[in-house]
């Protein structure tokens, strides 16, 4: 173990075979079917996929924020600095959340407390994780608001969330998340609810802050454009599994999984001509309530052959730090 760690001391988060199920009245939804990936120190990892692919469940499973009644992580490990987060007590976990791993959500209005000022909420996070005094924490809050480029931070610390615009609230959320200098920031669709010009500002802010603070970022999004602009490495998810993993340049240049390829081609792109029919991915995503035999994408896949419907493809290297779960990855990359 020790050997393993020193050899890979740039490793921050190591997720192995993570499996999360949701329990309904008479059904089990296999939201995560055993996923493995790593986040290195200081890198930005993109997690892409469409609704229901398990990208948000991955984040919530890592931070153990799933609703206890209906969901459970039933297998796997989440190693953070070598320690399995799934083994920690609730108290130990609370110390890690917000301190070493922070998270920002899509809708900042619902993740900020409406009855406290923004400054007080940031200060609270600081006080919980450091032994700072109230006034020092408030000073820190002001400093954080300045860092996320909110104009007039002296005045804005005393604002309630409703007194801020959507873009400013998301900035405040980022300020709160970064207040304790976490090593990992998990951002779940942080710009999806924002207008494009505000989105551009926030993306730029996240990239700048990442470079200044060295925080690793796990960036969850459905938007391939956002991935291309912000991430270094990307994992693509489909039906609760990772189907492809690559650095961002390789992924866009030569997607190796038919789903990744289909996803990229279905985005309108001027280089392929306007007013043309877009290539579609036929069909719909499979239900995760039934066990899936073979590759979960096979029913929609133009490359599918018999083996795809019978045996689940292993996750195999198709290049340096580029891997895909597809029996026909080579043909896909040539197409």
């Amino acid at each position: 173990m020790q050997m393993h760690q020193t050899a890979r001391n740039d490793l921050l988060l190591d997720v192995r075979n993570l499996e999360t199920h949701f329990f309904g009245e008479d059904s089990v939804t296999r939201a995560l079917g055993g996923i493995s990936f790593q986040v290195k120190k200081g890198e930005t990892l993109g997690v892409v996929g469409e609704s229901g692919c398990g990208k948000s469940v991955t984040a919530l499973s890592i931070l153990r924020l799933l609703p206890k009644v209906s969901a459970r992580t039933v297998g796997g490990e989440v190693r953070f600095h070598g320690r399995d987060l799934l083994d920690l007590s609730d108290r130990e976990m609370r110390k890690i959340r917000g301190d070493q791993i922070a998270m920002i959500f899509q809708e900042p209005m619902t993740s900020l407390n409406p009855v406290y000022t923004v400054g007080r909420q940031i200060a609270e996070a600081v006080q919980i994780h450091t032994k700072a005094s109230r006034s020092a924490a408030m000073k820190k809050a002001e400093e954080m608001l300045r860092l996320v480029r909110i104009a007039d931070p002296e005045r804005r610390v005393n604002n309630y969330p409703h007194e801020m615009s959507g873009g400013m609230r998301q900035r405040a959320m980022i300020a709160m998340a970064l207040a304790c200098s976490p090593e990992l920031l998990i951002a779940d669709e942080p710009t999806t609810a924002l207008d494009v010009t505000i989105q551009a500002q926030i993306l730029r802010l996240i990239v700048d802050l990442k470079e200044r603070t060295g925080t690793a970022v796990m960036f969850i999004t459905h938007d391939l454009g956002v991935v291309a602009e912000t991430c270094q490495r990307v994992i693509v998810m489909y039906a609760g599994r990772i189907v492809e993993q690559a650095n961002v340049i390789d992924l866009f240049a030569r997607p190796a999984h038919p789903y990744t390829q289909g996803l990229m081609r279905s985005v309108p792109d001027r280089r392929r001509g306007r007013q043309r029919r877009l290539p579609e991915i036929p069909g719909i995503v499979p239900s995760l309530r039934e066990p899936i035999v073979g590759c979960s994408f096979a029913p929609r896949c133009p490359f599918a052959i018999d083996i795809c419907r019978e045996k689940r493809p292993p996750f195999l290297d198709v290049g340096s730090s580029h891997a895909a779960a597809c029996w026909r990855a080579e043909e896909v990359m040539g197409a």
Partner: peptide, 11 residues
């Protein structure tokens, strides 16, 4: 507006 729209091209 056009400059702000993310483009799916990492190069």
């Amino acid at each position: 507006l056009i400059a702000a729209a993310p483009v799916p091209d990492p190069t």
